[in-house]
Simulated scan of single mutants.
Amino acid sequence: MTPHGPDLSLTALILAADPVVKSVMALLVLASIACWGVMIEKFITLGRLAREARAIKEIEQPQGDGLAAEVLRAGGTEWREGRDDEESGGEFRDRIERAMRSVFAARMRLAEHGLPILATTGSVAPFVGLFGTVWGIMNSFSGIAQRQDTSLATVAPGIAEALFATAIGLAAAIPAVMAYNRCAIRLGRIRAEGFSAIGTIAQRLARRPRVARPAAVRGAAAE
């Protein structure tokens, strides 16, 4: 309480809050920090994935450990095995494409790690903040009943700290929702671009002169 009335600064509201409301605020702050960590990591990861997806149809020889090189090596392995005698050209192309898609899809699944944190925070944080608000307002009404005083000086601090919990919940949820939608859209575009490039590469490999499988390889496959 200041000489001019109740202290409604953020620090005072947090320190004076009920333990339950403080716990809600701390939980929301931790969730927000985790979300920002995921956002920064996804910004870096998706930027690198986008460059590697574009590189799939640009590089000729797979070198290094990048995604584009891994995808092309997988396709090259299938192409070098050659076609079976009973395998059509389309089936050969599909086999090459499946091998490359498998590598690419595995990397895309790894890139999705962390997105559930954004989705959960974006959907749950407002309700957690609302719970803190409801709890704080209940305490305010309880204090009014005990003091038999309905003046603004009595009501304002409790209601302010309660509403502050909702504000923190919204501050955590809004960036999380925006980041999740942005990441989901960008992942979809990268996936589409990568699969398109893989289809082009598979078609190109399948049109190269046929490489027959060695007899030993065919015999092992038949067994």
Score class of each variant (00 low, 15 high):
20 V>W: 09
139 N>I: 11
127 F>I: 02
92 F>S: 02
32 S>M: 01
85 D>A: 13
103 V>N: 00
96 I>A: 04
201 I>R: 15
93 R>V: 04
131 F>C: 06
28 L>Y: 01
207 R>I: 12
76 G>A: 07
74 A>P: 09
151 S>C: 01
210 R>T: 12
82 G>S: 09
223 E>P: 11
23 S>Y: 06
92 F>Q: 05
206 A>E: 04
54 R>Q: 07
104 F>C: 06
119 A>P: 13
50 A>W: 01
81 E>T: 12
119 A>M: 07
99 A>T: 07
164 F>E: 03
170 L>C: 10
50 A>E: 04
84 D>K: 13
201 I>G: 10
195 F>W: 13
149 D>F: 13
48 R>N: 07
194 G>P: 01
43 F>G: 00
122 G>T: 05
29 V>A: 11
102 S>Q: 11
56 I>G: 03
204 R>D: 13
159 I>S: 03
24 V>C: 13
194 G>E: 08
113 H>D: 14
3 P>A: 12
9 S>Y: 02
209 P>R: 11
201 I>K: 15
22 K>S: 01
158 G>I: 06
153 A>R: 11
47 G>V: 05
135 W>F: 05
154 T>F: 15
99 A>M: 11
14 I>E: 01
98 R>F: 11
7 D>P: 06
205 L>D: 05
113 H>C: 14
108 M>E: 06
73 R>T: 02
212 A>H: 15
200 T>L: 14
141 F>I: 09
16 A>G: 15
134 V>T: 10
98 R>N: 07
149 D>P: 00
216 A>S: 15
186 R>I: 00
92 F>P: 09
124 V>T: 05
109 R>Y: 07
80 R>F: 15
175 P>Y: 01
186 R>Q: 07
112 E>P: 02
193 E>T: 06
49 L>A: 01
5 G>N: 03
37 G>F: 06
203 Q>M: 09
8 L>D: 09
190 I>E: 01
205 L>R: 09
